[in-house]
Design a protein around this nucleic acid. Structure first.
Length: 682
DNA sequence: AATCCTGGAGTTTTT
DNA sequence: CTCCAGGATT
């Protein structure tokens, strides 16, 4: 009886398709979840269903997402759905976090010392730079290219040896050799990069059946969110964990795949059908977000892309207003128009500022918008921008933390050896570096060696060794009862506060930076408190907490800003997954959307999906704007309206600024294409 | 170490 | 044009 009631509670408020997706557990399941179709509900309900109706303990269920934010939200929603503490032990994490856990647990057999570092892209870049400079055969400009290539190889499970054997040109050969050196260097530093967090577990599972079996026993049901964004190694990780059990539900939307440029393989969706012939495909087409008009426009646009799975969104939210396409004189008029639209609509219709979002293709487009919004005193919030972890003070403190848990982390060592100043110059460091690489040990380890005496003047050596001694002391303290206190003490030892004051533009700026540091330390404390109860291996708690900091996990953003009433400004990419009552899409022009580079690379389909994502963010109204003339690279030039405007259903669109008569004619006949209209009037 | 100069590019970004 | 990185200059 109780079970029956619970079942009812789990499955109510779901539509038939959603219900089917939740209840189907007899085999692999692909949920094609259109925008706004309640995909998170399906995942969280399914988790609840598995726990409560299928008696599957929460600790045997894992759900994977791409961002920490998504993981946090999903975990919260799932635990609310599940009665009592039954959701305890549930894994909801990012791919990278799961990978980190696997490497941590298996670090011995993988040959890593505990406390291994995670190199972020900047660390990786500076390492590559060093390697390439030593090599001498590649020029500095190629660093990005090399970094990208290595990342692509890692995402495609190509190891250095294979990269070398597959190289088509001397250039590729050189990169493959650098790739090999790079991996060796990471090993020497007891470090992994972001891509390794997926790749290493995959390689481990492929070569060690026993370990794989252990993890398969741990994870008995796997759910994957935003499946269209997985890359090859991520999909392989999923396949390995699932094995032949078919205990897999993936949720995704091929029409919202906008990250192919960073390795996502949307074809993983159709691949799934081949790899799991018994795959059940369930489409969620009812949308709970937008008006029919908006969905009609979105469907019509995306129909221009080839489709493996057909899908058409519909909703019961009413027809709604037509989509407006507004052509302005120039980019300034465009930004001005957006600002005045927001002001008048807010006054006339009692909307809040927060009901509006302005979406654009590239960050630079935000500049003018910001100016105009400021001018009209419209409060706005720009998401994106420089991240917390890019700030120098945070990078500095992180480097200290990393060196404490991993003394072999040369990158961290070099970052802080003279921050604050310790009067250790480049020549000293070069001598140390030379010695360390001869002996194939880390810089920090080299400091213990007597052989240094002949290489480095006594005074400088003394300074280095004083530093080393101090670091060891701090390390020891951090293993004590109160690791975070040890960290605080460390910062006061080096008078980091004084250093910040010395190196900030104003004392106000210094305060702000100090606040950031405190926030970081607080997060560390929180994380340690949280894991204190969990029965994890105790020794590695501080290491784990620091590793998670690098992955930006455990940074619980304060919600205060979200409550305030501000217009939302963001890129189309950043808008994925969000929704707003009233959306403006600006810069609907050829070369901007679709972007020029995408036109050149013949990548129109992804740009169309990006447009689709933008359209489907809108709940009530959608306005698109474009500038007739735009300043680019210094000079004003005529623009061409985006081809995507031609692909909108004419009966759902109101045109403005394309010439009065033509607008009427167009509305009446609904036949002419936009470009033919423009030809008439230009 | 701080500042100036020059040249080249000019999308999207999370972990 | 405008912003960066990197190198050269002070």
């Amino acid at each position: 009886m109780l079970a029956h009631l619970l079942k009812a509670a789990t499955v109510t408020q779901l539509n038939p398709r959603q219900k089917e997706a939740v209840l189907y557990i007899d085999g692999p399941c692909l949920v094609l979840a259109g925008a706004g179709s309640g995909k998170t509900s399906v995942i969280t309900r399914k988790i609840a269903y598995l726990i409560e109706q299928c008696d599957m303990p929460a600790r045997h269920i894992a759900a994977l997402t791409f961002t920490n934010k998504a993981a946090r939200e999903m975990k919260e929603r799932a635990s609310k759905l599940v009665k009592g503490s039954a959701s305890k032990g549930l894994t909801v994490s990012t791919f990278h976090n799961l990978g980190l856990n696997i490497i941590r647990r298996e670090h011995k057999s993988l040959g890593f010392k505990p406390g291994f570092s995670i190199f972020d892209s900047e660390d990786a870049r500076s390492l590559l730079k060093e390697l390439m400079l030593k090599e001498g055969d590649l020029d500095n400009d190629h660093i990005d290219l090399v970094q990208n290539q290595i990342s692509n190889w890692k995402n495609d499970l190509v190891n250095p040896a294979r990269a070398l054997s597959m190289a088509q040109s001397p250039g590729e050969q050189t990169i493959a050799i650098i790739y090999q050196r790079y991996n060796q260097a990471l090993r020497a530093y007891n470090a992994v990069d972001f891509d390794d967090l997926i790749l290493i577990p995959v390689e481990l599972f492929q070569t060690n059946a026993e370990v794989l079996a252990r993890w398969q026993r741990k994870i008995r049901y796997l759910l994957v969110d935003e499946y269209q964004d997985t890359n090859s190694s991520q999909y392989l990780l999923v396949q390995l964990i699932v094995g032949n059990r078919g205990a897999l539900t993936v949720v995704g939307d091929d029409d919202q795949s906008i990250y192919a440029w960073r390795g996502a393989r949307p074809e993983n969706m159709s691949l799934l059908k081949q790899d799991y012939p018994s795959l059940r495909v369930i489409k969620l087409e009812q949308n709970y977000r937008s008006t029919s008009r908006i969905l009609r426009v979105a469907n019509h646009l995306i129909a221009n892309n080839p489709h493996e799975f057909d899908k058409a969104l519909w909703s019961e939210m009413g027809l709604g207003d037509p989509i407006r396409v507004i052509r302005c004189k120039n980019e300034e008029a465009e930004a001005e128009r957006v600002a005045t639209e927001i002001i008048t609509q807010r006054l006339q219709k009692q909307y809040k500022f927060r009901d509006f979002a302005v979406l654009y293709r590239g960050n630079h487009q935000a500049r003018l918008l910001e100016m105009k919004l400021q001018h009209h005193q419209i409060p706005y919030k720009m998401s994106g921008g420089s991240s917390f972890f890019a700030k120098t003070e945070i990078k500095d403190v992180m480097a200290y933390l990393r060196l404490i848990v991993n003394p072999d982390d040369d990158n961290a060592f070099l970052r802080i050896i003279n921050t604050p100043r310790r009067q250790i110059g480049t020549s000293t460091l070069e001598a140390l570096g030379g010695y360390a690489s001869e002996r194939e040990i880390s810089l920090f380890a080299a400091l213990d060696e007597l052989g240094l005496q002949s290489r480095i003047p006594e005074k400088n050596l003394e300074r280095l060794q004083r530093f080393a001694h101090w670091v060891k002391q701090v390390t020891q303290n951090s293993r004590g009862e109160k690791p975070v206190d040890a960290i605080r003490e460390m910062l006061s030892d080096i008078d980091y506060e004084g250093w910040l004051h010395q190196n900030s533009a104003s004392s106000k700026a210094a305060e702000k930076r100090l606040e950031n540091v405190f926030y970081l330390i607080e997060s560390l404390q929180k994380s340690l408190d949280k894991t204190a109860n969990d029965d994890e291996d105790e020794e590695s708690r501080i290491e784990d907490a620091i590793a998670k900091l690098v992955l930006r996990d455990l940074m619980e953003r304060q919600e205060e800003e979200d409550l305030s009433d501000q217009v939302q400004l963001m890129t189309l990419h950043a808008s994925k997954g969000l929704e707003f009552p009233h959306v403006f899409m600006v810069g609907m022009e050829e070369d901007l959307l679709p972007h020029r580079n995408s036109i050149e690379d013949n990548n129109i389909e992804e740009e169309r999906r990006l447009t689709y994502v933008g359209i489907t963010r809108a709940q009530r109204t959608l306005s698109m704007t474009l500038a007739g003339k735009r300043k680019q690279f210094g000079e004003m030039s005529e623009t061409t309206p985006s081809r995507f405007l031609d692909e909108l259903p004419k009966e759902d669109v109101e045109w403005e600024g394309f010439g009065e008569q033509s607008a009427e004619k167009n509305l009446a006949k609904g036949e002419e294409t936009l470009s033919s209209l423009l030809n008439l009037f230009d």
